[in-house]
Design a protein around this nucleic acid. Structure first.
Lengths: 129, 129
DNA sequence: ATACCTGTATGATAGTATTCATACAGTCAC
DNA sequence: GTGACTGTATGAATACTATCATACAGGTAT
C-alpha cells in the first residue's frame, strides 16, 4: 500500500498536501477500510524519504477533516463511517465542511454555487468511485 | 463606483484577493460593462489607502482569468464577453477544487451531494458579501 | 517638448508556511 | 523495568507571500 504513494518535489505542491490528497484517495477508493490501521507516520516518512513532521502535518489535516483518528502511541486508524456516528455530530461536521469549502472557494475567486453544481455533477457521473 | 469598495485588513484575507473578488462582483453585477474602463490602479490604491502594486496584483489576476484587459499607459478595461470571466484557467481550477471537495467529503464520510446542497444553501442565506 | 495621465519594474521588509533534525513521551509485549 | 514500537513537541533553516516605497516608461493632450 505504501508502494502506491509517491511525491513530486518539483510540482510546487507542498509535500504534506500531496500526502494528504493521496491518503484521501486511498481511503476513498476503499484500499484502506474503516477501522483499519493507517500506515505509521514513520513508515510513510521513510517510504517517501520525507521528515516525520511533514507526514504528521498531513495526518493532522486528515484527522481534522474527520477522515482518520490518531491515537497517541497506538497508531492512526481510518475513521468509522458516519452511520456509526450520531446525527448531530455528523450535521455539525457537515456544516463545518460546508463553511470551509465556501471560504476556500471565495478565496480562490470561484463561484461557490458553480462549484457545488460541478460537484453534484461529478458525483452523478462517476457515482461509486 | 469606487465607493462600493472596501477592505478589511483584519480579516486575514490578502488585500489583493479582496480587491479581486470585489471587482469580479462588480463586473458580474453589471456595474461595469464590457469595454468600459475600469477604475485606474492608482484610483483604487488611493481610495483603499493601499499600495499601487497590491492593486496591480489583483488586476493581474483579473487579466489572467480573462475578466479584464490591461493596456499599458492607457488603462484597464472590462473584457468584451462578460462570460469570459470564466477563462480556461478558472474552469480548470474549479474542476480541481470540485475533485478535492469530493475527495475530502468521502474521506470524512460525508455525502457529497448533501454537502453541496448545504453549501448552496449557505451561499443563498449569507448572499451578498 | 512639457505635463500629466496611464501601467511597469525593482528592491526592501515583515509575516507566514514548509520542511527538517532532534529530542520527548505514552503504550504495549516481554 | 527494558526495548521497541507509537505519536508529540521544540527550535531552526529556508522558502514563499503579501505589502509597501520608490523609481521607471509608454501614451496623449496641450
Amino acid at each position: 500500500m505504501l508502494d502506491s504513494l509517491h511525491i513530486d518535489p518539483r510540482s510546487g505542491v507542498p509535500i504534506y498536501i500531496q500526502i494528504r490528497n493521496q491518503m484521501l484517495h486511498v481511503i476513498g477508493a476503499g484500499m484502506l477500510k474503516p477501522g483499519e490501521q493507517m500506515p505509521t507516520m514513520r513508515q510513510v516518512a521513510v517510504a517517501l524519504k520525507v521528515d516525520l513532521n511533514t507526514v504528521r502535518h498531513a495526518y493532522d489535516e486528515l484527522e481534522q477533516s474527520g477522515a482518520i483518528t490518531i491515537v497517541r502511541a497506538r497508531g492512526t486508524f481510518v475513521a468509522k463511517p458516519p452511520s456509526a456516528i450520531k446525527g448531530r455530530e455528523l450535521a455539525a461536521r457537515l456544516d463545518e465542511h460546508a463553511h470551509r469549502f465556501l471560504a476556500v472557494a471565495k478565496g480562490a475567486g470561484i463561484d461557490p454555487l458553480q462549484l457545488a453544481q460541478r460537484v453534484t455533477q461529478l458525483v452523478k457521473t462517476q457515482g461509486g468511485k
